[in-house]
Design a protein around this nucleic acid. Structure first.
Lengths: 225, 225
DNA sequence: CGTGTGATTGACGCCTGTCAACGTCTGTGG
DNA sequence: CCACAGACGTTGACAGGCGTCAATCACACG
């Protein structure tokens, strides 16, 4: 069952009941398993997706096919709207990393809603502006911080986005390579630095699961004040 | 004299005559000299600005006060709209690097236009989406390319944005430090790499003026295909 | 002429990417 | 049940790109 349009805090909260009805007839929702590609960089996409559950990674493919993860999408997020509204080709690829249930929203409907509902368009604009602010901040970080600082910062960002469970374990599990592709470094560097963080009693490692021991220490390592 | 709202290709092209009249009474336009700060990172800004002439650099302040230049604004560009629409504090500082003539647009008027004119809001949304795409691309570049590749790429980006004059000179002059603050490196590295580019017959250096000799060679150096 | 900003060059060393080898675990097929 | 392949994780060796520090030069300006 799709709850894209009923959740009160998401991007669709200012739609009228009729508009709600227009965007998510159940036939447009579907399950996607880990590894599924939702859309591909460089392709034209006909609509966007609302995430009901699961986690999607959004990345660009750079030199030698190396992934650069830009962000993750989770419950309540909307993906692909940028390309739909700008009319450009997709500038990223979206790939499922935790089994997901997504609702498809055709591009023309999204555009129609944008033009007809000023509150909705303002919400979407604010979302884009917020993402723009985050992107600018990340440019500054990548350009100025060391790999060590960035890795610590990425762990803290992941904590804010996906939270810790009752045992202080990060609620998203990523491969070492995926971590490297967020930070923008080599897999081996991530492995070595995670070991150092462990030696420094900042985290514990249990396979891919990461337990947070010392958040102030991580902030200090990340050079955040 | 202000031509913000009359220029046919800019963001205001879809405003009605009455709307045009509302945004730029001449009293709201002013000259700013090199070094003037238009708005400051972390401050609340009450409106945005339309650039009639001149060049503005938009940057974030990172570790130890080091500038990270995000982009430049020139004739026809609009700056500060992100913070006005998202209601957040300014996430960047805007500083004049070539004497400029700017028109001020109060935030409430911009928001009113956004809500009342669907074509205008779509144009603004597309602008934000385009900037978002560029930001994502730059994240990938900074994370994956060497300083040498990025410097070559930045020169090519500057060429696309500010063009070459008839003698193949880049029509924007920046200090070595400013170049470093775009690329995200040390000033000394920029100096050394520019010398190397000169040795490689890719460019000529005449003080701060840069003459382009071999654009395909620069593309190759930048790892662009 | 002193001052300040920017440009340049050299020395030095560490961070970090690359390459290679090996270990671990899972799933598959014989 | 075992062998094997493949994905992922780990560790070590090594080189070099690039940041930092310091000294010097060029040039403009009051």
């Amino acid at each position: 069952m799709c709850n894209c349009s009923t959740d009160l805090n998401n991007i669709f909260r200012h739609l009228t009941p009729e508009e709600h009805a227009s965007i998510s007839p159940d036939r447009n929702c579907d399950y996607y398993t880990r590894g599924s590609v939702i859309y591909n960089e460089g392709h034209r996409i006909s609509g966007c997706f609302c995430v009901n559950s699961g986690i999607i990674k959004i990345f660009k493919t750079g030199i030698d096919g190396k992934e650069q993860i830009i962000t993750f999408a989770k419950k309540g997020d909307i993906i692909g709207f940028r390309s739909v509204l700008s009319g450009e080709l997709a500038c990223t690829t979206a790939k499922v990393i935790e089994n997901s249930y997504l609702c498809y929203i055709p591009g023309n409907i999204l555009i129609e809603l944008f033009k007809s509902n000023a509150e909705f368009s303002m919400d979407l604009m604010q979302l884009a502006c917020k993402e723009l602010g985050e992107a600018n901040a990340y440019i500054t970080d990548i350009a100025q911080k060391t790999v060590r600082e960035r890795l610590a910062e990425v762990l803290l960002i992941l904590k804010n986005d996906f939270y810790l469970d009752n045992d202080q374990f990060l609620q998203i599990t990523l491969t070492r390579e995926e971590l490297a592709n967020i930070v923008g470094t080599a897999t081996e560097s991530v492995i070595r630095l995670l070991s150092e963080f462990k030696s420094d009693k900042l985290i514990e490692l249990h396979g891919r699961r990461i337990k947070f021991l010392d958040i102030p220490g991580l902030k200090k390592t990340a050079n955040i004040f």
